[in-house]
Design a binder for these strands. Structure first.
Lengths: 229, 229
DNA sequence: GAAAAAATCGAGCGAGCGCTCGATTTATTA
DNA sequence: TAATAAATCGAGCGCTCGCTCGATTTTTTC
């Protein structure tokens, strides 16, 4: 089953859907009134922002270049955000909201088995980062230049993800499925393994490793490290 | 044994020593003739660059701010480099040269045992990144904005590190010490675990995890995943 | 301690930045 | 189709950037 299909029951991760959610989240800051116009333009702006930023960094992307890439004028851009920083916040919000929404949605048949739950979390996280790859790369690379509030939210969001892993690990340890001393430490090591998928994507692409193969490989690696295989 | 002590046989990772090597590497671009003056000033410049960059990013650091933090004038700075990009290249070169130099220096008693060799590589890599923490954070965070040639070198340097891991893993697999199908894939997963130490340092500091404890934890995790424990 | 050499200074240059706002075009209404 | 509202435009503003270079200070030489 292709990744979009496996992910599909949990939401729509297309660019337009993301633009729609971003519009809803920032309706008050966006001057364009008609939703279908706003969503379409917003999608082009977000798309162009991700493209330019992931090449040279958000700071180095000029709004003139963005305007040209998105097919708008300088002034036109400012109908969709009230400053460059808001554009950053819009994208970040979409990433963390998508991640939090998905990971909390584990199906019941998986929740009962810590090993299966853990594998599900890893797989879904990887598939999500694949479906929203430019968003995830952006959020990861620009994390250091976040404005203070967004930064705090990003750290909190990552801590929340880690807490989900830690809880499953602790549950598994209690049941004797995982042989580990420190669930929190083990949980901390899982995140970077998932992040490596989208951070070093070209490396894996060159080796012909797909998202599913990567997710499976990481699951196996982690489960063996936890003494579950 | 404290980390500097364990690392000591393999080189001097102090700021002044790094400044000395950087000076030697870029003698032709640096106008200041007297080495002891040049090394001292260069050390202050590098130190200030790492401090300011790791807060807001290299691009966002202005040379005026750098001059003030380093205790020089704008013009004074330009006796030590011929452009902002050169400053970037100087620091990157020091990081990759330190990493490559150290990892190739495994002692003989460790080379014979794949598991010990792997543990040594992981530990030394973590301790090095601890001793040169601002350098490593800088190199990692600014990787995307490298000028093209430096970027290629950084990717090559990372691939070289990974190849060292892969070789040890393949050797261990051949001897039956490691139970793995794909040494290259496993090698790819080790790097992000090491990087997490310096990228997410505050998280581990808050939990009271030291460099040695982290290195040991990662070693154990990896060796179990490889079926060696 | 005067002359020469080395090192440092900092105001000023052109360029590009984020952002604004009155003018203009496009879409909707009656 | 005339009037109104919505959306877009882009030249221009103030500012900061990387960088230069003649003036100045510090160090070395004899």
């Amino acid at each position: 089953m292709p990744p979009e299909k496996r992910l599909a029951p949990y939401g729509d991760y297309s660019l337009d859907a993301a633009a729609g959610r971003i519009l809803a989240r920032h309706r008050d800051r966006i001057r364009t009134r008609k939703p279908h116009v706003a969503v379409a333009k917003l999608a082009r702006i977000i798309e162009a922002t991700l493209k330019l930023s992931n090449r040279q960094g958000f700071q180095a992307m000029s709004l003139r270049d963005l305007a040209e890439a998105a097919g708008l004028s300088m002034g036109g851009l400012y109908s969709y955000f009230d400053g460059k920083e808001t554009l950053l916040v819009m994208i970040l919000g979409e990433v963390s909201s998508a991640a939090e929404g998905l990971l909390a949605a584990a199906p019941d048949e998986v929740r009962d088995d810590p090993a299966a739950h853990l594998a599900w979390l890893i797989e879904m996280h990887v598939l999500l980062s694949e479906a929203m790859q430019p968003f995830f790369v952006f959020a990861y690379m620009e994390a250091k230049s976040f404005p203070a509030p967004a930064r705090k939210r990003a750290i909190a969001s990552e801590a929340a993800t880690e807490a989900i892993f830690a809880k499953v690990l602790a549950e598994g340890a209690a049941r004797g499925v995982f042989k580990i001393d420190d669930p929190d430490f083990a949980a901390a090591l899982i995140k970077p393994l998932i992040q490596d998928w989208y951070v070093k994507r070209p490396k894996y692409a060159k080796r012909g490793v797909s998202a599913e193969v990567y997710a499976r490989g990481v699951s196996d690696f982690v489960l063996r490290a936890l003494g579950a295989r």
